[in-house]
Design a protein around this nucleic acid. Structure first.
Length: 666
RNA sequence: GCUGCUGUAGCUCAGUGGUAGAGCGCACCCUUGGUAAGGGUGAGGCCGAGAGUUCAAUUCUCUCCAGCAGCACCA
């Protein structure tokens, strides 16, 4: 009599199954609906094929489309295999290599047969059609374990040199898993070497839920010494609706692109000679100044004191802070000597002393903290700085305002005692929340835990991570934990904003750091008269002005809230006879503190309305003879069809109210 | 930094082995028009930088730079 397997389910129940049973059998035993919906299984925490028998007693969680993250990864990986199968079916002789899931889909690297050109855009529709055929054929995906040598022999026999090379590098004697698409060995069955897991059959994929997007060159194993392959990218989702939403999001994102809007709205520009650094135009810098004024009010009102620290410091200082060792590849270093101005010889001597532009403000803030002697009675000390930092970012990472090499943070460092950490973090969580609310953003909080490479003792890390959890719990918030994602000196809380089209952006952060105060020997005098180490909280809410403005532009599609709009109102006369009245209206608006201009050009009113609407001016004040006679203005608000005719005084009161910053509203 | 693509007027783009074109914008003229483009005329370009092939290169080749998309990395 064989012993039954004990399979524990997430609800705590235990099911007894015959040996050889699979997760599918469990699903079927629970109900036919679940059996149909189950895509794969999490067995003792590991994602596995739904049809793979249990090894013994196990914890089981069935994965369905509702477990979106797992489901998407599985589905995308399967699409990658279907892609490879389709390409080989269409062009026999194509070599396959490798094809993983990506953030929004999948890709597969293939080598076109010698008889044809590398695959290009024009091939994609044909491949898509073939993929749909394979999906509709509902071919079972069958896992088998092969010996390494058998597999190498197979790949060599089929001329799959890349696969053979790969298999050879895996440990000798090891068994490898392969997946058949179709009954093993049957006509039309296709085989790939793959760790898995996979869905039960190709028919589990939605043939309407993917789209091949583009091709790109890629070298075998990412090394340009190797053969050049074609990488075919696709996007893939659980169903057609998700795919459509994704494609729509891409289109929307293009319309909202802050680089395009920034140019059209004359906010800023970028150019080669200073790539990665922003030239702010008057209108763009107006947004910046409004944000800065807003943030200063917030910080002044929350016990912060603003400082300004040097842009360039000696390398010795960066050595001591640890940046020279851990962060130098991201820093701009500067020789500390008079450059040679002769035509002959090097500009800088070989034994030059080095300085560096600051990539972060924290060391300088510790230096300010260290001036004089600090008593525990003085803590917490919150030092803020609109700190301009330079980071030598990889060129490929640069992206408009979102990723630049010179940026300004709304930075601050809170120096406090061990006992004060949780309440300071709590206060920051509240402050950050009030800011994001003022801009209308929803957000998610993530807790990034200790990375492999780190400074400091495990005991300190335990403590630091727990403090952040305690603060979140005390504020009644939910969060997601990201193991291994913390900074090398501290765990961090991250605020991820969700914008109007569902994208997320990391902006704010707070990190509790015991390393830097130690390295730079920061101390305070405690109640006991002895020296103690303060804890240092690094924190920012906007993150950087550059990125935050980029996010705002995209979130609002350029239609910034009135208080941030560079031009809040334009006065447009219909006929030149009322230019004088228009100028009077403008003067009154300006006197009321509204950022306004007038458009006295010799153009028709339709033309002016179109132009200023496209420029996203929130209010147009249109005046003709009627308005002049009555002392009124016709207000047209951006995004609304109707206009309101108001007496000038009322109009100004209305605009003033609309233009007040959210923290200053009554 | 890696891979692919791109670089022509302020912007969006067409084009050619014999040094260039459109639309929008801009300037000027006509038009004074009531809620998203009135008409005409004109100015404007070292065709990203360097090298090579060629009688001749913006066009072909190579190198570099920058941009774009992805990857890796991040505020």
């Amino acid at each position: 009599m064989t012993e039954l397997l004990k399979i524990s389910l997430p609800d705590g129940s235990v099911r007894e199954m015959e040996p050889g049973a699979t997760p599918y059998d469990v699903a079927a035993a629970i109900g036919p609906g679940l059996a149909k919906a189950a895509l794969a299984a999490r067995v003792d925490g590991e994602v596995r094929d739904i049809g793979r028998p249990f090894d013994g007693d196990a914890q089981l969680a069935l994965i369905t489309a509702k477990d979106e993250e797992d489901a998407l990864e599985l589905v995308r990986h399967d699409f990658a295999h279907v892609l490879a199968e389709a390409v080989q079916a269409l062009w026999p002789g194509t070599q396959i290599t490798f094809g993983p899931a990506t953030d929004d889909g999948f890709y597969y690297d293939v080598m076109a047969p010698e008889s044809r050109e590398p695959f290009g855009l024009e091939d994609l529709p044909v491949i898509e059609e073939k993929m749909r055929e394979i999906i509709k054929a509902d071919k079972p995906l069958v896992r088998e374990v092969w010996s390494r040598d058998d597999l190498i022999a197979k790949w060599q026999a089929e001329g799959e040199t890349f696969k053979a090379e790969w298999a050879k590098e895996l440990p000798e004697g090891e068994d490898l898993t392969v997946y058949w698409s179709g009954e093993p060995g049957s006509e039309g069955a296709w085989l790939d070497m793959c760790r898995g897991p996979h869905l039960a059959s190709t028919g589990k994929l939605d043939p309407q839920a993917f789209k091949l997007m583009r091709t790109a060159g890629a070298y075998w194993r990412g090394d340009q010494k190797n053969a050049q392959l074609t990488r075919i990218y696709g996007t893939a989702w659980l169903n057609k609706k998700q795919l459509k939403a994704h494609l729509h999001r891409l289109e929307e994102a293009q319309l909202r692109d802050h680089r395009k809007l920034g140019r059209e709205m004359d906010l800023f520009h970028l150019q080669e000679e200073a790539h990665g650094s922003v030239f702010w135009h008057p209108k763009g810098y107006r947004i910046w100044r409004e944000l800065e004024a807003y943030m200063r009010r917030k910080m002044d009102g929350s016990g912060y004191r603003e400082i300004k620290t040097p842009q360039v410091m000696d390398a010795r200082q960066w050595e001591q802070s640890g940046h020279w060792g851990k962060y130098r590849e991201n820093m701009f270093v500067i020789p500390d000597e008079v450059p040679n101005t002769e035509d002959e010889g090097d500009i800088v001597s070989k034994d030059a002393e080095w300085m560096a532009l600051k990539p972060m403000n924290c060391p300088a803030h510790v230096l300010v903290f260290k001036q004089g002697i600090t008593s525990y009675r003085d803590l917490p000390i919150r030092l803020g700085e609109m700190g301009c930092c330079h980071r030598n970012e990889p060129h490929g990472a640069l992206h408009g305002l979102m990723r630049v090499r010179q940026f300004t943070q709304d930075d601050a460092h809170i120096f406090c005692t061990e006992e004060q950490v949780v309440e300071e973090v709590q206060a920051f969580i509240t402050l950050a929340d009030s800011v994001y609310r003022d801009f209308g953003f929803d957000y998610k909080i993530k807790l990034a835990l200790r990375p492999e490479q780190r400074f400091g003792s495990d005991a300190d890390w335990d403590k630091a991570e727990q403090e952040l959890r305690d603060a979140l719990t005390a504020n009644g918030l939910e969060w997601e934990e990201l193991p291994g994602e913390g900074a090398f000196y501290a765990p961090k809380l991250e605020w991820h904003l969700t914008d109007a089209i569902g994208r997320t952006w990391q902006v704010g952060t707070i990190q509790s750091d015991r390393v830097l105060p130690d390295r730079l020997d920061a101390t305070y005098i405690g109640e006991d008269g002895e020296k103690h180490r303060p804890v240092m909280l690094h924190r920012a809410i906007f993150g950087s002005y550059e990125r935050f403005i980029g996010i705002l532009i995209e979130h609002f599609a350029g239609r910034l809230p009135v208080w941030l709009a560079p031009t809040q109102a334009v006065v447009a006369p219909i006929v030149s006879d009322v230019d004088g009245y228009a100028s009077n209206v403008l003067a009154k608006l300006e006197a009321a503190g509204i950022r306004a201009s007038s458009d006295l050009r010799n153009e028709k009113i339709n033309y002016k309305i179109r132009e200023h609407s496209l420029a996203k001016v929130p209010h147009l004040l249109i005046v003709g003879k009627r308005e002049e006679e009555e002392g009124t203005v016709a207000i047209r608000t951006l995004g609304e069809k109707d206009q309101k005719v108001l007496p000038l005084d009322e109009a100004i009161a209305m605009l003033t109210d609309a233009a007040s910053a959210p923290d200053l509203k009554a």
